[in-house]
Design a protein around this nucleic acid. Structure first.
Lengths: 349, 349
DNA sequence: TGCCTCGAATGAAGCGCTTCAAAAGAACCA
DNA sequence: TGGTTCTTTTGAAGCGCTTCATTCGAGGCA
């Protein structure tokens, strides 16, 4: 079985022919043991597996994907790893891919367009099987074409303008709708929508959704307070403007949790309004600290993990060529998480 | 120049010989243009580069690292992508690596030991140039050996027990020290250290550091309140116990920001203490919401990005074989970020 | 016993790149 | 012009794997 071993100085990393020699089989049999075990008779397979164990063989993925002409890795390009929404997407995608025996590479763009493009190029060089992209701006598809991204690609968070790529997005309209609906169901009548700039498509849709809920319920009104951004400081500005309103506002839909927190701070501490008794506030995104702030914020939770899962499934279908004749866009619904900023609880601190 | 082109049906992805043919040079020249431009005369190089552009050639990384026997990618295995500390480490490492023309692959372990091991194996298969590992527990090095991780590896956040691997850690003792020192410099005398379980090495060291600061200053005392965890709810429990103390506590060092937030909530809202006038509170970690909570929390900021940078540098040295005879452990100091929970500000909301 | 069939095992070819010994060119001097 | 030296270019070999046409061998049947 063990014939004259060729002079191989230090087999630091044993390769397939080392395994084949050790097991007394041909190299093709080792390959089949790994990739098509049903084609190898049991005794042979066991012998090969024992040799793999004995030598501590780990298959060289570079060689594998070079020879096979395809990789078992997909890449995801995130807008910002500091944002838990995107981290959730990655988590969801990873779970689905792992079930299918594929690996996920995560790249972070840090909200910089150059990094995003460079990350795409890295994946392109790595010849990943496919790419999940959270585009930095909705017009990115043009840049993609120029970057010659020629492999299966699925967008998350923005739909493609043309139908060139499949995509997964959240139903922003519905999110705005259930936020307002929640306030209305609590008996609130004089609502404010705070968010902006309105030219952001997501904000506009949330506003439209809230508007629909109000228009469906006689006796309720919705006022828009447009902000220039979505941070706590913008929230404070919005809070002052809400406090200054003539009409007595009793419900606020904020387009982000940070906005909501800023608004709550000003209303409680400067305007002397009680939250939620006088004013109920709903945020958006389910940021980590929405639940951790002094007054935990009722929020619309983005379906991040589900979006990641759906994106991974679309991508797998595309990789396998099962995407029958069309790039679909999947729309997932967010859901409401009720906390103390809209509903007083016994055990509230 | 363009001789009879071999029948190549669809050059979907042009390769190096396509480029060579197009530019009228040998394939080795194309390779040199990419990897050793100084070895190619300028006119030739420009011609090759033009052809690369014209054909939209992207080098196949799998083939490259197979032929070269080394990859230009390093992998980082994070404990938890949901924790901004680890995200910062990745960010820092990425910055340093990118400067050196290397790429960073991020893998998330989601606090699960199996995922951590599986991620290590993926990197092993990918034959990455090196690995940065944030181990889930300090004893992981044993598992590493059994997983036959045989490539350059640097630990972050935990030092190796033996001197087998280089590492980067934060100076927890110093962090505890400056936290207590800050309170003392504000004239606080009756301090509490809240955190736990004490068997966690990091907590024990922070406590020791705080103890040292107190022992250096006559007239100050430090009481330990051990918690069973480090979340907001544990903080609330600790807060109640602080409120119940006989002596009038005027300063608290909390071992995490969440703990600090819970303590602040109870002291302010249930015990009627003013923050920071009656009690000043310092947290730890600079969690995102430490600055976003109603009372922004003074905190000890972990040097996450710096740790990532340092880890990447150690790893690069090891990859290049410059790690003269020893695995060093680098200790980086955290720093204090002063906010409203210890110092009253004019513009406090 | 001889022939046929079919599942199992074989191993050469080739994936796209880097390397490096060898060939070709350029530059210079006598 | 020929010889020498140095620079630039060439292209075959080989990295470790997958693939697949080919070969092997066991079993069934006449």
């Amino acid at each position: 079985m063990a014939d004259a071993r060729k002079a191989r100085p230090t087999p630091l990393q044993p390769n397939m022919s080392d395994v084949a020699r050790h097991a007394g089989v041909a190299i093709g049999t080792v390959s089949n043991t790994l990739n098509n075990p049903e084609k190898v008779r049991e005794p042979t397979r066991l012998r090969v597996q024992a040799s793999i164990e004995a030598l501590g063989f780990v298959r060289n993925d570079a060689a594998r994907s070079l020879a096979a002409g395809s990789s078992n890795t997909v890449g995801i390009v995130l807008v910002d790893m500091g944002n838990s929404f995107f981290v959730d997407i990655a988590r969801g995608a990873e779970a689905t891919l792992r079930e299918q025996g594929m690996n996920l590479l995560i790249a972070n763009s840090d909200i910089e367009i150059e990094k995003q493009l460079s990350n795409l190029e890295v994946f392109e060089q790595a010849r990943v099987a496919g790419i999940i992209l959270a585009p930095l701006d909705p017009h990115i598809t043009n840049s993609l074409v120029s970057k010659a991204v020629s492999r299966p690609l699925v967008l998350v968070n923005y739909a493609a303008e043309d139908a060139r790529y499949a995509g997964v997005v959240a139903d922003e309209h519905y999110g705005g709708y259930i936020a307002a609906q929640h306030l209305i169901s609590l008996g609130r009548k004089n609502l404010v929508f705070a968010g902006g700039p309105i030219k952001l498509q997501a904000v506009a849709e949330r506003l439209a959704g809230a508007g629909q809920a109000v228009s469906e319920t006689p006796g309720t009104v919705l006022t828009l307070i447009e902000t220039t951004g979505m941070n706590i400081s913008h929230g404070r500005t919005a809070g002052s403007r809400i406090a200054a309103q003539d009409a007595c506002v009793d419900g606020v839909v904020a387009a982000s949790d940070l906005l909501a927190i800023g608004i709550i701070q000003v209303l409680e501490q400067q305007a002397g309004r009680r939250i939620p008794e006088d004013v109920a506030v709903v945020g958006y995104d389910n940021n980590h600290f929405a639940s951790e702030s002094t007054t935990p914020v009722t929020t619309i939770s983005q379906p991040g993990e589900d979006m990641g899962r759906a994106a991974a499934e679309l991508l797998l279908a595309e990789i396998r060529g099962e995407d029958e004749g069309g790039r679909s866009t999947i729309v997932l619904r967010p859901h409401l998480i009720t906390r103390a900023s809209t509903v007083a609880t016994r055990n509230r601190v």
